[in-house]
Structure formats: structure tokens, C-alpha cells
């Protein structure tokens, strides 16, 4: 059995939940033989600065719905990093927005990969697509979900008329990751 627990964290408005939705949708709809379950924090705390989406991806039916010890973190704000990093497993893969997050209290086994997603998004003309740049980077660095599956999920998830721009953002993040790897 192969099950991976992932936590997407950032502040409200960055598209954190959408990033989680895209990865979950890619795994369960467009990739082969994968299951995905996404849960969100809906409490009053989720309306504050640190918001998160939790995704479990497995090649078996998912039973327990919540992420308890994330193996992969995608962090887009310092507060999300401070809050969610301690939950992670000792050898977690930590994917961060370089200019927004300085990981503290990393455990020695953790692997950290950074990308200046905000700047790259600005270069593409829209700062708000930084979450999709992050999704591209996530796809390259984790290899968890097939690239084409994620592209299809991006297309299916973003507002109508913005597909092309979002796919460019995805590809930019993906290529940045491939060069880094």
C-alpha cells in the first residue's frame, strides 16, 4: 500500500485550497488507479491568516479521512510554515515559496525545495497565479502525480478564460523544478 499525506498551507486568498483541489482532482480523476481525499479546516481559525487543505493520495481506497502526519508540505506563508511544519514526519518533503517562507526548526531528515513563485507569477503578468506556479513546482519535485494529469486538472479547475495563463504558470513552475532537480 502506498499512501501519501500532504498539507497545503498559506494565507487566505493565495489559492491554497485550489492548489490542493488541483492535486486531488489530478490524482483521482486524471491519473490512473489513484484515490484522493481532500479535507479542509473550516473552523473560525481557517478564516484567519493560516489556511490549509489536506490531501491524501493512495493507490487504495482511503478510509481515515484526515491528514495526521504530513509527508509533503507545500507552504506559501510564514505563519502556515510555523504552524504546520511541526506536524510533519521527520523526513518530510517541504516545498516553499522562497520569498515568503523561511523554514525554522527543520528536522535533519527534511528535504526543502524553494521557488520564487510570486516573482515568476509576476513575470507571467499576474501575481495571483503563484499558486499554480507552486502546483507546477510541486508536481516536478514530488513526482506523485503524473504531469499531464495535473495539467488537465489545472484546466478543469481554473476560471473559464484563464486556462492558457494558468497552464503557462504551471509549466513555469514545473520547469523550474526540473532544472533544480
Amino acid at each position: 500500500m502506498s499512501t501519501t499525506e500532504i498539507k497545503f498551507g498559506g494565507f487566505g486568498g493565495q489559492g491554497v485550497i485550489l492548489a490542493g483541489m488541483i492535486i486531488g482532482r489530478a490524482a483521482s480523476i486524471y491519473d490512473k488507479n489513484k484515490f484522493a481525499t481532500l479535507t479542509q479546516s473550516f473552523g473560525p481559525e481557517a478564516r484567519g491568516s493560516a489556511c490549509s487543505a489536506q490531501v491524501i493520495i493512495s493507490n487504495e481506497k482511503i478510509l481515515f479521512p484526515y491528514v495526521t502526519r504530513p509527508e509533503i508540505l507545500m507552504l506559501m506563508s510564514q505563519e502556515a510554515c510555523n504552524r504546520f511544519l511541526p506536524e510533519a514526519v521527520d523526513d518530510a518533503t517541504v516545498i516553499i515559496e522562497n520569498d515568503l517562507v523561511r523554514p525554522r526548526h527543520l528536522k535533519p531528515g527534511m528535504k526543502v525545495y524553494g521557488i520564487p513563485a510570486t516573482r515568476l507569477a509576476e513575470e507571467l503578468g499576474r501575481k495571483m497565479i503563484l499558486n499554480i506556479v507552486m502546483v507546477g513546482f510541486f508536481t516536478a519535485m514530488t513526482g506523485l502525480v503524473n504531469r499531464e494529469a495535473v495539467r488537465e486538472a489545472v484546466q478543469a479547475s481554473v476560471p473559464h478564460g484563464t486556462e492558457e495563463m494558468n497552464l503557462k504558470a504551471f509549466d513555469r513552475g514545473y520547469e523550474y523544478g526540473i532544472q533544480l532537480a
Partner: peptide, 10 residues
């Protein structure tokens, strides 16, 4: 229940 209602799956 809230968990099933707010859980996203295929």
C-alpha cells in the same frame, strides 16, 4: 455529517 459533507473525493 460534517466530515462526509466537506470531504472532497471522486
Amino acid at each position: 455529517d460534517e466530515c462526509v459533507g466537506h470531504m472532497t473525493e471522486k
